[in-house]
Design a protein around this nucleic acid. Structure first.
Lengths: 275, 275
DNA sequence: CGCGCCTTTGAAGGAGCTCAATTTAGGTGG
DNA sequence: CCACCTAAATTGAGCTCCTTCAAAGGCGCG
């Protein structure tokens, strides 16, 4: 039974949970808020000044080690909404740590069908799919104006050979991605439509909470179609499930604005056997 | 279009293809064939004598480097059919390279639902899910009598810091797992039942071919139920799809014995738009 | 040789999809 | 600031593919 609980966690929790007072500014999805004033300080210091370092690659590193990592981190890069950070087929050079903003990754099939493989937020790492074949295998698209730290992969490997903690943490990050993917496979393979959406909402809530935002109230950065693609459902089904949750008093939906009214109720949906 | 082709490859091909003359002995699933006589030679030398090194961790390493890796590889371990290599919740100590045999990995949900997350064969690496949380997150079960090389993870990390090629190759292996998972997500999220099964058969064929076995004729090591779990289908649906393929002259099915009669025809099923 | 498990096949039911019409929100230009 | 325009979301109705339930057949193993 204990391992079953463990598995549940994989579906919902992609990142280590850290404690931080909840922020009240819930409008981070507005692009204006994301334009960080460029001072000498923010330009020079990457990780050592970053308030995401508990969620990101520097996790567990000592101060001097973080400064070493700083030197490896290349320029920051700003990605406007709807622009690609990278595309499938582009040669792989670097992985990216999200400083601010929101991304989706998707893969495209010959016949035009495409599948969203994930949504990524601040502190999460993008681009690890590219390591295996020296080229990216999916597209990464910003769902709002975003900023990433470019980490040239050869530099990261070089540094990993020197800093054991960094090496191990990077391995953990990659492994976490594998575990996350297993959670999605579970979701796609065994869950019904409303279970999938409930799991999705709880996962988002969890990740926003870990970043200090409200666990109950947030704005979806993606469309119903993108949610549907991720969950293996049609956009109409997603919309209907949202409406149904609202009827049952579990959430409040106003287009992309979501309020979770009954966290426990959503969780209960997951445990429920289909037959 | 090129990247679309690339994506298709992810669904079908999990491993680098290497050229080897096809073997005629197709009865490798018989346990007897897997009991390698224990000579001093096979006991002492792990990777340097292994004919799977082109598919496995030593790939790309020089002779002296492979010998270094040898020293890191711990004992081999034999796993009988239906026995667990590891279970979800067990503490993570090592990853495993499959020397011979066939495995499945699955995750279990609280309510009893479980999902097969993959099938692994010789040369493939098991256990990387455990790195992130210091405990395994899925179960690995042998589907036939098997043998694995135990690679203590701390040793692998230690050696990775010294051998750049090994470090990079290990990163590739992890990344390949992520890409493979994306392929499965695509399969589960967007494909119809018969497309899923066709993709599954082509993937198996591809991987057997890479190991020198016939691309057209093989024995399934798993039950219809396990295939169904992996593909997000019920066992009856899998069985019906097999029968339908046979009616159409695409394959021949005799319980677990499969002959692919029309490789191109199966491939065509994948490209077909559902609407 | 017999038992159990796996597989096959049929028939009926349902969850989610398709198609279609309407509403709403957000961005744009007058 | 408002009217317009387009993209996104909602909602309904019918349909389809897969599931569910059930029963029979086959293979392997003790």
């Amino acid at each position: 039974m204990r391992q079953a609980v463990r598995c549940r966690n994989h579906v919902q929790f992609a990142l280590t949970q850290i404690k931080q007072p909840p922020r009240t500014d819930l409008k981070l999805h507005k692009p204006e808020k994301h334009i960080i004033p460029l001072t000498l300080n923010t330009l020079k210091a990457a990780c050592s000044q970053c308030n995401l370092r508990e969620l990101c690659l520097p996790y567990g590193l000592s101060e001097p080690e973080i400064e070493q990592l700083d030197s490896a981190v290349g320029a920051r890069r700003r990605i406007k909404r709807q622009q690609n950070l990278y595309r499938a087929g582009e040669s792989f050079e670097a992985i990216y740590a999200i400083r601010s903003g929101f991304f989706k990754t998707d893969v495209l099939l010959e016949d035009g069908r495409n599948q969203v493989t994930g949504f990524q937020m601040a502190g999460e790492i993008l681009g690890m799919d590219g390591i295996s074949g020296e080229a990216h295998t999916c597209n990464a698209v910003a769902l709002e104006d975003s900023e990433v730290c470019v980490i040239p992969f050869s530099q990261l490997e070089h540094l990993s050979r020197e800093i054991q903690t960094l090496q191990h943490h990077f391995h953990k990050v990659m492994s976490r991605e594998i575990v996350r993917d297993h959670g999605v496979m579970m979701l796609l393979g065994t869950m019904r439509a409303e279970e999938r959406l409930a799991a999705f909402l709880l996962n988002l809530s969890q990740r926003f909470t870990a970043r200090g935002y409200s666990p109950a109230e947030f704005h979806l950065r993606m469309t119903r179609d993108e949610i549907g693609s991720y969950l293996g459902l049609k956009l109409e089904t997603v919309s209907r499930a949202f409406s149904h949750f609202q009827e049952d008093g579990l959430i409040s939906v106003q287009q992309k604005h979501i309020v979770i009214l009954d966290h426990a109720g959503l969780k209960q949906l997951l445990n429920h056997q289909p037959n």
